[in-house]
């Protein structure tokens, strides 16, 4: 059992891959770079020779996938928040990939608190910026006293609660799924992990990506209505 605990701890720790001038670059950042590089190359390759007339199968699939992804996000945020669709869609791709990358033997970046906190911080900034852009600074400040003045402290607290819940939900889910998978592998290394991996790695990973984007989109929609 001690063996399991040790190996779990080792797996859970986000190691510093290398150090540049005394600054440690963590594994999650490096894996993010890898994801970025792979997607950049894939995007460049896929969007080569796009045709208006008679598109090939690859192009049709790409177009379908992109349209579908944008449709999902737009369905959450609505017509008014169309300008935020590209950001949310890109975040959806990133979290989805980050959650699934464990399959390829990398450590999922979303298992690092730095990443989920970063995502949540960007979400809350975006949510508030959307509110300010919609109502102006005055209207945005005023919105804290709505619907009644007495809830103002709670509304201000929400500024912290929303991103905290976002990041902890993502972090906890990925971490929990990871720990459970490790335990299952320890108990029964053959057969069962494959089945459970379908749920914990694939399904839960994608669901968490969707939930994160869904909630961010919902908060933005709330602020721009």
């Amino acid at each position: 059992m001690g063996n399991l605990g040790e190996s779990l701890m080792e797996e859970l720790t986000c190691e510093t891959v290398f150090t540049v001038g005394g600054i440690g670059i963590s594994e999650s950042v490096v894996v993010t770079w890898i994801i970025m590089a792979v997607f950049l190359i894939a995007a460049l390759l896929l969007t080569r020779n796009l045709k208006v007339e008679n598109p090939g199968h690859g192009q049709l699939m790409l177009e379908y996938a992109i349209t579908w992804l944008q449709g999902v996000v737009e369905g959450i945020i609505g017509e008014e928040g169309r300008e935020y669709v590209p950001y949310l869609a890109s975040i959806l791709i990133y979290i989805g990939t980050a959650n699934l990358i464990g399959i390829f033997g990398f450590k999922p970046p979303t298992k690092d608190l730095n990443v989920t906190v970063g995502l949540a911080l960007m979400s809350i900034v975006l949510i508030q910026v959307a509110g300010i852009r919609k109502r102006g600074v005055k209207g945005w400040l005023k919105s804290f006293t709505e619907p009644v003045a007495i809830v103002t402290p709670i509304n201000i607290l929400e500024l912290v609660i929303k991103p905290l819940s976002l990041c902890m939900r993502l972090f906890g889910n990925v971490l929990g799924a990871f720990v459970i998978m490790k335990l299952i592998e320890y108990v029964l290394p053959v057969g069962l992990p494959v089945v459970c991996s379908m749920y914990f790695d694939l399904f839960d990973g994608l669901i968490q990506a969707y939930v994160f984007v869904f909630l961010t989109g919902l908060f933005i929609k709330e602020n721009i209505e």
Binding site: L40, L44, I66, S90
Partner: peptide, 26 residues
């Protein structure tokens, strides 16, 4: 730690890349 800043920079770059090289052309 400092990786939080790196992550945020990464995410901003990621957004720009995906938007420019994937969503825009399609």
């Amino acid at each position: 730690d400092i990786n939080l800043v790196f992550t945020i920079i990464n995410l901003l770059i990621w957004y720009v890349l995906i938007r420019k090289f994937l969503f825009k052309p399609v």
